[in-house]
């Protein structure tokens, strides 16, 4: 029995050690890789995670706006794509809201380019896009006698359905919507709506790349990538060595076998 050379023994020993040490990490990489590859199928981009400790780990904290629009006991607060009306989460429109009016039994929320209409329970009623507005940008909205009033450019217009608009004289008075400061109690009540969340796909990608542990996490995954390369190289080396030895052993056995003289 002959002993394998030092290099071969070292290679096998470290192949085993690296393989065992990295097995858990590679499993995580494989699972997160599969999730990323099939994220669309699993709708992972629409799944959001808001676990407090995880958001805290990311350094994300609830940020409740300090101002909102109030009318007829309804409070509307918006920040980015989070719109909240009277305790109901709304489907956000496009752009920053410039006003909220409760008129004709409906809630009208204007941005520079459109008016989003809801009922008092927050159900979407309609969207009046720029094609149906007398112009853009919408500067301000208000109400008078159950009608919606809007300042578009330098002119004032009135509507009762959002479709038919009538130009008004400039001096006509109206109750214009304007933002007002929220009380501490209102901000506390709104906090759950503005709690930070992240797409699950983003978290999976961060675990996969190591970014979830900051720059050291990236270095760790870099180290794992190098370890995988070493494993691949040593694995191929061991396979080729074994293969060569087996081939020679088979040939030797064939030569050593005595011929059948019968």
């Amino acid at each position: 029995m002959t002993r394998a050379p030092l290099l071969s023994r070292l290679l096998r020993r470290w192949h085993r050690r690296i393989g065992l040490a990295a097995a858990g990490f590679f499993s995580i990489l494989a699972i997160t890789g599969l999730l990323l590859n099939h994220g669309d199928s699993f709708a992972l981009d629409s799944l959001r995670v808001g676990t407090p400790w995880l958001m805290n780990w990311y350094g994300l904290k609830p940020a409740v706006p300090e101002r909102g629009f109030a009318e007829d006991g309804l409070l509307f607060v918006a920040q980015g794509e989070t719109w909240v009306l009277g305790g109901h989460s709304l489907k956000a429109g496009h752009g920053e809201p410039v006003g909220m009016v409760h008129a004709a039994g409906l809630v009208w929320i204007a941005t520079n380019d459109e008016i989003d209409i809801f009922d008092a329970a927050g159900r979407p009623v309609d969207i009046i896009e720029r094609d149906l507005l007398p112009g853009t940008p919408l500067r301000r909205i208000g109400s008078r006698n159950g009608q919606l009033l809007a300042i578009i450019g330098g002119d004032s217009f009135a509507t009762s359905d959002g479709i038919s608009w009538k130009r008004l004289a400039r001096d006509e008075s109206a109750a214009w919507s304007h933002p007002q400061a929220l009380s501490v109690g209102e901000q506390q009540a709104l906090a759950p709506f503005f709690a930070p969340t992240l797409p699950f796909q983003r978290i999976v990608a961060d675990v996969h790349s190591g970014r979830i542990f900051g720059r050291y996490g990236i270095l760790l995954v870099d180290g794992l990538a190098v370890a995988l390369l070493l494993l691949a190289g040593s694995g191929v080396w061991i396979y080729l060595k074994n293969r060569g030895s087996r081939t020679r052993a088979t040939k030797s056995a064939a030569i050593a076998k005595p011929p059948d003289l019968r």
Partner: peptide
């Protein structure tokens, strides 16, 4: 066994590469 220390080093043949 696949990780036996009791084998001697050998040459890599063309048939080995083909089988790989």
């Amino acid at each position: 066994p696949p990780f036996s220390h009791d084998e001697s080093p050998g040459m890599i043949s063309l048939s080995t590469i083909r089988s790989l």
